[in-house]
Amino acid sequence: MRRIRQPSVRRFGVAILAAALAGLGHVPPAMAQPIYPIPDPDGFYWAPPDVGNFQPGDVIRSRPVAAVGFPGATAWQLLYRSTNSAGDPIAAVTTVLLPVGGGLNRPLVSYQPFINSLGLQCAPSHSLFDGGMQEAPALNVLLARGWAVAVPDHFGPTSAYGAARLGGRLTLDGIRAVKRFPPADLADSPVGMAGYSSGAMATGFAAALAPEYAPELPIVGVAQGGVPVSIGELAREVGQQPNRLFGLGFAAGIGLEREYPGQLTMERFLNPAGWALRAQVANACTTEIIDAGAYKDFDDVFTGSVFDADAAAIGVMHENSLANYPGIPRAPIYEWHGTDDEVDPWLAREVMGRYCAAGTPVLLDMIPGADHVAAIYAGAPRAFSYLSDRFAGLPAPSNC
């Protein structure tokens, strides 16, 4: 087995997220007992009893909020209707930032942050303004271009970390909500989407789902970087030896339990230390999760063969992996990776090749010598320039 480096938090990012997924298995629905987060005490986030009477993307309620950290901007939060992976109606939140001058049908960018948390207090609608979101200051660059920015809570109302397809659907319904919200004045705005690492998982799924799920949205370009396209492959490659970021993989297992109750559970594998870790991180944000699971491995928290995943577990991993999802984006894509990225860039290249063969313009940018964290800084300015050109109506470049 090749040696796995022990990187910084941001370097490995989502690469470890799949480490615990191979420990998920199928049990009868009555035995599955996901551990859910403590409900948000703010009643704004609560779904009304009649949430099913709304259409996906409909605004249920709204409120203005102080745009802390975004000088001159106006901020709103929208509770909107979406749908979970079981097909049930849910309510989710997106935050929209308007630049000086308001909406005026300006370009709209839906930005999906890279978040790795299980507690609802860690969601973007909170972390945008309380200092918890590392990349939040960079959104001022987009606002300075005169663009509106929407930031969805793309893990949903149970903070289902790891459920990437859900994230894509929440992203698209969040865009719908912003465009249907009259005070934003963005009904006729062209749309771009952007995200890195776990945020790119939601972005990538939104792009792939859009042709069938939200064909009415005028998505002109997508910028996504460091995308983990196959959770299953990561599960096989990562997490079999002590790693500082083991807790993130464990947390992803908890998140998928929440989104697929009755289909997935870690219960039949957990030893007493595993039960304790599960309880410790169930409402935690990224740093707490990393600290709690630091340098653990499967043998520390599981009993039995954690790689004995059955068809249900494999099916869920495939459902949340772009490498297995057959949908083809129609919007042009800028995809960037470091050549030394711990999230396998060559798997992403294969997915982009499939998109190219189907006729989607793809600009694949492999940044020489960059690992997962270095690629963020190298690719983000190029990503924003790429979206600027799409908003300007320039032909999308492609190196298919």
Results as ranks from 00 to 15, higher is better:
223 A>W: 01
224 Q>G: 09
224 Q>R: 03
225 G>E: 10
227 V>F: 05
227 V>D: 05
228 P>Q: 13
233 E>H: 08
234 L>T: 05
235 A>N: 00
235 A>E: 07
247 G>R: 04
251 A>L: 01
252 A>Q: 04
253 G>N: 08
254 I>T: 04
254 I>D: 02
254 I>Y: 02
255 G>L: 05
257 E>Q: 07
260 Y>C: 12
261 P>S: 04
261 P>K: 10
263 Q>I: 12
266 M>C: 10
267 E>K: 14
270 L>S: 06
271 N>C: 12
271 N>E: 08
272 P>A: 07
274 G>D: 00
274 G>H: 06
278 R>P: 03
279 A>E: 14
279 A>Q: 14
280 Q>A: 15
281 V>P: 00
285 C>W: 01
286 T>Q: 13
286 T>Y: 00
286 T>H: 07
289 I>Y: 03
290 I>W: 00
291 D>K: 02
292 A>H: 07
298 F>N: 10
298 F>G: 15
298 F>I: 11
301 V>G: 06
302 F>C: 12
305 S>V: 11
306 V>P: 10
306 V>G: 11
310 D>T: 11
312 A>G: 07
312 A>E: 09
314 I>A: 11
314 I>P: 05
315 G>H: 04
318 H>K: 15
322 L>F: 08
322 L>M: 10
322 L>C: 11
325 Y>F: 15
333 I>A: 13
339 T>G: 08
339 T>M: 04
343 V>C: 01
